[in-house]
Design a protein around this nucleic acid. Structure first.
Lengths: 215, 215
DNA sequence: ACCAGGATCATACCTATGTATAGGCAAAAT
DNA sequence: ATTTTGCCTATACATAGGTATGATCCTGGT
């Protein structure tokens, strides 16, 4: 008999906190703090080390020093965005000033901690950041499934779906696309089937949440 | 003949910047700076003065000192939220620290300027804040019109609309509400008319954007 | 050469939806 | 007391939507 957890457990996704900090002792301190509350961690002494590693398939967050060898943590935020890495960032600093803080927060940092910080503050920030990433991934997963289904529609079916969800009647769609009404019905039915929409209302809602960017 | 601007001009909404700063000279400096670029302003030396005045019917923003007589600017942010005042806030400080900055930004401040700041920084922040408020008011206006129409529906019509926009067929709605199908059709038709929806798709979209909170 | 899939259309049939007309009932407003 | 309003129902008809069957045409790949 197999242990239940190997059979039906959804397996808690085990978030990974990526620590990027060049000071070894602080890095280790954060590492053991986070591990003490059951979080998985990956330690890096530079951004390059993180970029080479990047297991981005699991939820998590970044804990990032502002002052890093070679690049500022603030600039690195921009780099992350460019590369499509959307892990929430918890920023740390020893010698930060307010403009720096403002910039980091505007760029979407979850928190900005000044060294030395209290353990609890770090834990709270990481907890918030991880929750944020979980939510983001959940949303992403939902719309991705939708996109896949949408991509499986033939060009015509996509056209018909667009007009139908815009509120047009079959005959109007037919007129706009120079088709017979019966053909529109065929495409419409195929779109409903492929999109797994059991009602027009459901299809409209899907169409609504489709145009969302990749975040 | 009347001047064209008095006839068909949509009248630029004239945003108002509310300045709350107890230091008279700085207050005047900000006031003249903002007026120099054509913005309307209201000056206050305390939060009470602002709360007594509050012409909140026009778009605009708040320029707020962190240290104010009687209350901290940070606490005042919470007060504003409680009172349903959603003007974007540009925070200023002479002696701010990073935790303070983080808290203000988390609470939604548009920017956090350290005195002395450059004129251009203030102008940029105010410009962003005003644009934000314009967008918020625009969104609000749209959903408000929708809410009014929804409020004009009878309870039954609202029920029917909810089920119909959830994708149920008339007969299913009838079963759930213990009605005859024909009655559902009546309510459904009335809902479409009152909501000014020319198609089911339109009604579904309206239902989607209705539940939004007041921001 | 052959086949699969996409696109097109037709006939036929059934179901779903919309509206008009007409009536009954109860609560609230005038 | 009367009117209005919301709510409920029915019959009848018209339009819209959905699906099945069958067929033609084209294109890209085996």
């Amino acid at each position: 008999m197999v242990h239940p957890s190997n059979v039906k457990a959804p397996i808690p996704p085990a978030p990974v906190v990526h620590i990027i900090e060049d000071d070894a002792s602080l890095r280790l301190a954060i590492d053991s703090l986070l591990r003490s509350v059951g979080l998985n961690t990956r330690c890096h002494d530079s951004v390059q080390s993180f970029l080479d590693d990047k297991p981005l398939d699991t939820a998590g967050c970044l804990v990032l020093d502002v002052r890093l060898p070679g690049i500022s943590g603030l600039d690195f935020q921009a780099t992350l965005a460019q590369r499509g890495i959307h892990l929430p960032v918890v920023m740390m600093t020893g010698y930060g000033d307010i403009p720096m803080t403002v910039q980091a927060m505007k760029a979407g940092a979850v928190d900005f901690l000044t060294k030395p910080f209290r353990d609890q503050d770090m834990l709270d920030a990481v907890s918030t950041a991880v929750a944020k990433d979980r939510q983001r991934r959940k949303d992403l997963q939902e719309t991705e499934a939708l996109r896949n289904r949408y991509a499986s529609l033939s060009p015509r079916e996509q056209q018909v779906m667009a007009l139908v969800t815009a509120g047009k009647m079959n005959k109007q769609v037919a007129a706009e696309l120079n088709l017979s009404e019966i053909t529109v019905k065929i495409h419409r039915g195929a779109a409903m089937r492929k999109m797994q929409a059991r009602s027009l209302a459901a299809l409209v809602k899907m169409a609504e949440s489709l145009p969302q960017a990749t975040h």
